[in-house]
C-alpha cells in the first residue's frame, strides 16, 4: 500500500527525518510511537503533501504511484487521509458544505458519481449519528467553537465520509478525556477493514489499548529505532523512550 524508502526531510535547513523506511500492507494497522520532536508529525504532514517541508532524499510510493509528485488534493483523491492533530477552524464555512465539497471532489477524482444534496444529507446524517455528531454541529462552521473531543470526532466523520485506503491519524488522542477517546477509537475501529490501512501516530501507549495495532514502530530523532508487536508499547510505557535516546547519545 505505502512504501517509504530512505526518506530524508528537512525544514529551514534542519533535518527532521533522517532516512525512514516503512512498508505498510493493506488491511493492517500500524502505530508509530515516539517522543516529542522525534519527527512523527513531520512524517504525517509530508505524507499529506504539506509544502512547508523539503524532501532531500528518498521515495514514497502509494499503491505503486509516486506520492511525492502529487499535490495534497490528488493524494486525498488517491485515498490518503490525514487526521490532524490540531484540526483547523474555518469561520464562515459550514461543516456540511465542507464535507459535501470534499466528498464530491474526491468522488470526481475517483471517477464515481457525485452526490446531490439529498443523497449527501442522507449519508452524512447516518455517519454523523454513528460518531455522535448532531445535525446542529454540521451546520456550524468547520471546527469553530468545537471542543477538543468534537474536533476529533469531526476528523473521524471526515474519515468515514471520504473512505480512504490509508488513514494517517496524527496524535488523535491528544487533548481527549477517556470517554472522548473511546468514542473516537470506536469510530476508527469501525472503519478498519481488509482493504484499509491505518497508521496511528502517538506519543502514549494509552490510545493503543483502544486501537490495537498489528505492528509498532518506534521513531526517535528522525529514525525508526525499533519495530515490534503490540507488546512493544507496554514495554515503552514502563521504561520510556530514554532507552533509545540514551543509546543514541552514547
Amino acid at each position: 500500500m505505502l512504501k517509504i524508502k530512505n526518506l530524508h526531510v528537512s525544514i529551514d535547513g534542519n533535518e527532521i527525518l533522517r532516512g525512514i523506511d516503512l512498508d505498510l500492507e493493506a488491511g493492517k494497522t500500524y502505530a508509530i510511537m515516539g517522543p516529542n520532536g522525534s519527527g512523527k508529525s513531520t512524517l504525517s504532514y509530508v505524507l499529506a503533501g504539506s509544502d512547508k517541508y523539503t524532501i532531500t532524499d528518498g521515495t514514497v510510493s502509494f499503491n505503486g504511484k509516486n506520492l511525492i509528485g502529487m499535490n495534497p488534493e490528488e493524494r486525498a483523491g488517491e485515498g490518503l487521509f490525514l487526521g490532524f492533530q490540531y484540526p483547523v477552524e474555518i469561520p464562515g464555512v459550514a461543516t456540511s458544505t465542507f464535507l459535501k465539497t470534499a466528498l464530491n471532489a474526491v468522488k470526481k477524482y475517483r471517477g464515481e458519481d457525485e452526490l446531490d444534496a439529498m443523497q449527501f444529507l442522507k449519508l452524512v446524517r447516518k455517519k454523523a449519528e454513528e460518531i455522535g455528531i448532531s445535525d446542529e454541529m454540521l451546520k456550524r462552521p468547520v471546527n469553530v467553537g468545537f471542543s477538543g473531543g468534537e474536533k476529533k470526532r469531526n476528523e473521524v466523520l471526515q474519515l468515514a465520509m471520504l473512505e480512504p485506503k490509508l488513514a494517517v491519524l496524527d496524535e488523535t488522542d491528544s487533548g481527549l478525556d477517556i470517554d472522548a477517546l473511546k468514542t473516537v477509537a470506536d469510530g476508527v475501529n469501525r472503519l478498519r477493514g481488509p482493504k484499509r490501512s491505518m497508521l496511528v501516530i502517538t506519543h502514549y501507549q494509552r490510545l493503543l489499548n483502544y486501537i490495537v495495532p498489528d505492528v509498532i514502530h518506534v521513531l526517535v530523532n528522525g529514525k525508526i529505532v525499533a519495530t515490534g508487536a503490540k507488546d512493544l508499547a507496554i514495554e515503552l510505557e514502563k521504561s520510556g523512550y530514554s532507552m533509545f535516546t540514551d543509546s543514541q547519545a552514547a
Binding site: P72, R75, F84, A102, V106, Q158
Partner: peptide
C-alpha cells in the same frame, strides 16, 4: 492546506 488535504 486542511481543505486541500480533504481533496478540495
Amino acid at each position: 492546506f486542511y481543505l486541500r488535504a480533504r481533496g478540495i
